[in-house]
Design a protein around this nucleic acid. Structure first.
Lengths: 338, 338
DNA sequence: TTGAAAGCGTTACCAT
DNA sequence: ATGGTAACGCTTTCAA
């Protein structure tokens, strides 16, 4: 059996109250008692039970993390950043893969609640805002990362998706592209919507019309990118560039182009979003809009911990600046053969 | 405040014992009482506290998962499989990134113990076998996945790394390669060691000598693969094929070859190990030895849950068969120009 | 079929 | 400086 404070107290000839105090460094305890108790704890390899401690109203030092899918490199990198900082601050993180399904989300939240996590970091899209509101009512610290719920007052950490879209468009425009297609995720996803909005606005501002038939709404996987790009490129009039709303879709585009023997970037430029490991691994490597995933994850944890500690009541929305990372998948539009 | 069984009991006009029984479906409760209590729980949005329940000696329904780094696609995919099956069986998983550092491992284990997890799944290399032994003594269910500790009696789920190495060598040999280099991870990692052993044995059996100067021991990241390959390819006599002990290293090799304008696979074949998403995303795509990550993760969870439930005492070592997945990075060795 | 009460391992308040 | 004890929310045994 594991040792308890009773064992330690008995061995040290003191009360459990005293042991508790030395564990927590509270109250006034003589140096002698303190060191004696420490020695015995050491000898017994004593680890205080977080469970019992939590029951008395203290924290569980556990955070819930909702992501659509950790096997998606973007969320894997976010998860890593969050776990790192959580660990740094003394919190464990429980990982939950939601597949963006509201019913799974509700089940996970219910489980996390039963386990009395101290807060939940949400990186998954939620359709029903009621789910979030119910959480907020319970006064449970919540932070949204890489997702938005504009109608709900909740702490939020995002990249400026709109600006990212603008950056992408500006880059393509600068290279002389005018016939541009967009591969976007479901428009239920706020980030995807904003990226597209920024992109289109920048085109419009530049006086370049966007051809609606070149807008493809896909799921978020490589295969979706591939199929939709195949579709796009098999028509008579082709775009000279494609903006993919994330790296996974861009990988699919790359594959499609390769199948059709279309050379990237000389025949077709591709720009993507996220800058996960994938963007640096493809051939050609992907020009992409980078999100500072590590900083975002770290901030999300810092914020939630501040709320947990009660140091903070005001909710903020922190927007990081995205950055254009130029690699090999984009090039000047050459009109020679057109 | 959250509702407790006391609230429910009071409202229902019964004792907390009765409420507890209906929650757990234990003892004999009249249908009337049962449904009345259920109705009230519903109305109060009551969620029993796992914390309090755990304190009475029941399970926490939480598993610890130790991985070197979730942002490594291999472990991300393993983590996803484990979390899925865990959730399926009612367990949450606490993710821990160890960076393969024994000191971080010890700290994580200590934390998981304080939180009374029901078991720990270990996918990270551990140098000091004492760490594991101490855990086993505590009678805490442990499963090793994708790692081995031959000297410790612990439930283990692995792929046959040796056979995988053989498969890789056989493929290269069949393609006519004889000048083969190996990029391996630290030899402290059992899987890497075994892969190499199988590979070399197969070469030897085929009467092809392995040139020791073509063995590069690296870390596990893309950059390590790149540097070491650059090194390898900048000497006067070059190998015609490289066996990379994981996909990340292979990506690095691909990059190095590209920098040196060496064409894959016509000038140099590359074969790797794992078959993560990366293998299908590079250009050329990677011929690789696939591990059934999903099945392995699922089995690891099934096994640990059996131990938790006490249905099982014997420890087994389950070895999955790896599979050769031929893609574009390997080709016949052409002697024309040699 | 139901309930009273002890117990799980801590914390915190109030005494001493 | 230290200790007694109630309380946290639940499970379980034993009795009624």
């Amino acid at each position: 059996m594991k040792a308890t404070i009773y064992d330690i107290a008995k061995e040290a000839g003191v009360s459990i109250a005293t042991v508790s105090k030395v564990i927590n460094g509270k109250g006034r305890i003589s140096a002698d008692t303190r060191s004696a108790v420490f020695a015995i704890m050491e000898r017994f390899d004593f680890q205080p039970s977080v469970i019992a401690s939590a029951l008395t109203g203290k924290k569980t030092f556990t955070l819930g993390l909702l992501v659509p899918d950790v096997s998606n490199p973007f969320f894997a990198e976010i998860a890593r950043a969050i776990e790192d900082q959580g660990h740094q601050l003394g919190y464990s993180v429980v990982m939950c893969n939601t597949d963006n399904k509201d019913e799974k989300i509700e089940r996970y939240i219910s489980l996390l609640l039963q386990k009395s996590v101290d807060g939940i970091i949400i990186a998954t899209g939620i359709e029903k805002k009621e789910i979030l509101e119910q959480l907020l009512v319970k006064n449970l610290p919540i932070v949204l990362i890489a997702r938005e719920m504009p109608l709900v007052a909740v702490e939020t950490v995002v990249v400026d998706d709109y600006a990212g879209g603008c950056l992408a468009a500006a880059h393509l425009l600068e290279l002389g592209h005018k016939e541009i297609a967009i591969l976007a995720e479901s428009q239920k996803v706020s980030s995807s919507r904003e990226r597209m909005r920024g992109f289109r606005q920048t085109m419009e501002d530049a006086g370049v019309a966007f051809n609606e038939k070149w807008l493809k709404i896909c799921d978020y996987k490589v295969e979706d990118g591939r199929i939709n790009t195949l579709d796009l490129l098999s028509e008579d009039s082709r775009p000279t560039a494609i903006f993919c709303c994330n790296d996974l879709l861009a990988v699919g585009s790359l594959q499609a182009a390769k199948e059709l023997q279309i050379n990237i970037p000389s025949d077709l430029s591709i720009i993507s979003f996220d800058n996960t490991i994938l963007a640096s691994v493809t051939n050609p490597t992907l020009t992409t809009i980078a999100q500072p995933m590590e900083q975002m994850g770290k901030l999300a944890v810092d914020l939630i911990v501040e709320h947990i500690k009660g140091d903070k009541k005001a909710k903020q929305r922190t927007v990081f600046r995205p950055e254009l990372v130029i690699r090999e998948s984009t090039a000047l539009h050459t009109t020679i053969l057109q």
